[in-house]
Write a protein that binds this DNA or RNA. Structure first.
Lengths: 366, 366
DNA sequence: ACGTATGCCGCAAACGTATGCCTAATGGTG
DNA sequence: CACCATTAGGCATACGTTTGCGGCATACGT
């Protein structure tokens, strides 16, 4: 048998994904013929090295920086060398069982199909990746029953904490969860009594209104989402505030609570064009609703922005593509911060909510 | 102390999420004062019931249908009753450690921001939910390095199998993975040698071409995505096939490999309008690219479809909103089937790839 | 009456890791 | 030389499940 030959294993049973190509050593009368069909564990490493599992465990878990006083530099080198040669990866289930920490974070969003939430989730996941955590995401569809059931199944998987992107401003669900001691943070939507990272949506609504006023519009419609979302409530409130400050209100502004997607925008247009008097400007609390609205308006022969101006919200790529004037919200950043704050919460630190500033992006629809 | 009083615990330490409200029983001289700060385990249940953990385990794991011969009906009732009273949920880490199965499925997609992949993932997750599995998703951004690293970290978490939505038709990565014995299936994109569930993209391309021909167009452009994606390759191939069958080719059709999103559509238009002669019809292999293209065309004063007709692909909601003619692909179904086939694979069954039929949806852009 | 089948359940050993507590040898100090 | 601190590890247990292998009754067949 040749010395130090590299043998590649193929077509191994599926439980052995983690085995990497392994070098056999056949020296003199002594040869290690470790059972290559078994994935490397602390025990197998320790056995080969003539060490105790506890020693190997401590060496492997030591911070790379800290000069651990648990072993000699030589031993540490040998351990790391063999570990990487055998392709050792810690069994997270065993570790979690021992430590009762899973390093898993659950994320619940209304729907990943929604670009906004998908982007926020990317921010969460990016932050998790840098911190060595993994995330598990679930769609609640904003349905209270599903919110509960998906939450319970994530907890049953022993996630360390939860991030909600689907908070309902009027539901006791999150309060009950917090009372049970579940660490959680909120992103995108806020709710009193919980740590949240949101866009400053009141300001966002104000930006839209101010822009319309500065271009001389006087009659308005708002295409709003669901009433239970703080995003809807705050954006509408900010918008109406500014109008009121300029003495506009009452019959000069109509709010349509339809939804956050393109079809919702179409439905809203169908409604508002049926009203006795047309608005001169439409504020949609979501880009997709805005685009749906614009599509419907154009189909009716309405020219945007000459006849009716439109402003959206979030500044998704599609907004840029169709040249939609919109309010930019920091989606990725909300996700990142939402995750970071949850981590602080898990460390028993005190954490405050945060509202990130929006920015008006003027393009050609308003 | 009152009898059978219901006590609600609030503000418990965060490790105890799973404890549900617990009923204390104080009867005569005997009173269970179980340690309410500890989550229920098989041991605590068994202790309270005077049974052995193995018995409780077998009862709890028995299929609800099968009349297990492991315990008397009365005992089974008592176990289930106490389990639900204590809010018992199995510790999945302990179970996985024992069985070396995690019931976790890893999913890797180019990017969840992409509506198409997000929808496919929803199909996967929906299927997983009905089978009692959980999924973990990661973005690869179609970057080979990230594909590998995200795959390895999912494997390190001991997923039972993987579903890829980002297969590169020319990369050996998946082959290497399969050779290591990792069970996997592909969705959206196919690759020779692996089980995949895709849309019949060749047919989809043919549908688009036939439609253009039937409305009298003779000069074409294709906005294609990345060359490494089978979706690009197949859709373009089907499109060109039909043209060739009608004697069209060569300088009468240009293919622009830009990307799958709206900005890619804009870039492609910038290129194709700079060419010496304009196309009469544009086939975009993705709705978002199509919308980006339409936006760019309109900005240049080109009227769609009179000057240039446009057909997209996938039939996303935004297509309906802007009245885009497109080829519908069964996204959710692809996800579902991709998951189901992986489960079959895990059961060592033989599984075949599948191509689902597309459908042309004619609206007003072509 | 005796052997066997069945119903009902317990014993004990893993799975792989983390961690509190020991120990043995070495080096330094007074 | 006696004593103590440091270095370099080992021992043992617990985390919560699952599962092969019994074991003891009672019922049943001959």
């Amino acid at each position: 048998m040749p010395n130090g030959v590299l043998i590649l294993f193929q077509g191994m049973p599926f439980t052995q994904h983690l085995i990497k190509p392994v070098a056999f050593f056949a020296a003199e009368n002594r040869s290690f013929t470790m059972n290559a069909t078994e994935p490397a564990t602390l025990k197998t490493l320790a056995g080969e090295l003539g060490l105790n599992v506890s020693t190997v465990s401590r060496i492997i878990n030591a911070e790379p920086g800290t000069d651990s006083k648990w072993a000699s530099p030589e031993t540490i080198r040998r351990v790391h060398e063999l570990a990487s040669a055998r392709g050792y990866t810690r069994n997270p289930h065993a570790a979690s069982l021992r430590t009762s920490r899973s390093d898993l974070i659950g994320v619940i969003v209304p729907r990943l199909q929604d670009y906004v939430l998908a982007t926020i989730y990317e921010g969460i996941d990016a932050a998790a990746e840098t911190r060595g955590r993994m995330t598990v995401v679930a769609n609640s569809l904003d349905d209270p029953t599903r919110q509960r059931s998906r939450t319970e199944s994530l907890l049953a998987r022993r996630v360390d904490g939860l991030i909600f992107g689907d908070a309902h401003i009027d539901s006791p669900f999150l309060d009950q969860l917090a009372a049970r001691g579940v660490p959680l943070t909120l992103v995108s939507r806020r709710k009193a009594g919980h740590v949240s990272v949101t866009c400053d949506d009141v300001t966002g609504g104000r930006l839209a209104a101010s822009h319309f006023l500065s271009t001389g519009r006087r009659r308005f419609a708002v295409i709003a989402g669901a009433r239970y979302a703080s995003t809807t409530v705050d954006r509408v409130a900010g918008f109406l505030d500014v109008l009121e400050e300029h003495g506009i209100g009452g019959s000069d502004v109509d709010v349509y609570y339809t939804g956050f997607d393109a079809p919702a925008g179409q439905r809203a247009v169908a409604e508002l064009m049926a009203a006795p008097v047309r608005p001169e400007a439409v504020f949609a609390v979501n880009d997709f609703a805005a685009i749906g609205a614009i599509g419907a308006l154009q189909k009716l022969g309405v020219v945007v922005p000459e006849d009716i101006a439109v402003v959206g919200y979030n500044d998704t790529p599609i907004a840029e593509a169709v040249s939609l004037t919109t309010v930019r919200s920091p989606m990725v950043e909300m996700g990142r911060l939402g995750f970071d704050k949850l981590l602080l919460l898990l460390d028993k630190e005190v954490v405050e909510s945060e509202r990130l500033p929006p920015e008006l992006i003027v393009r050609s629809t308003a």
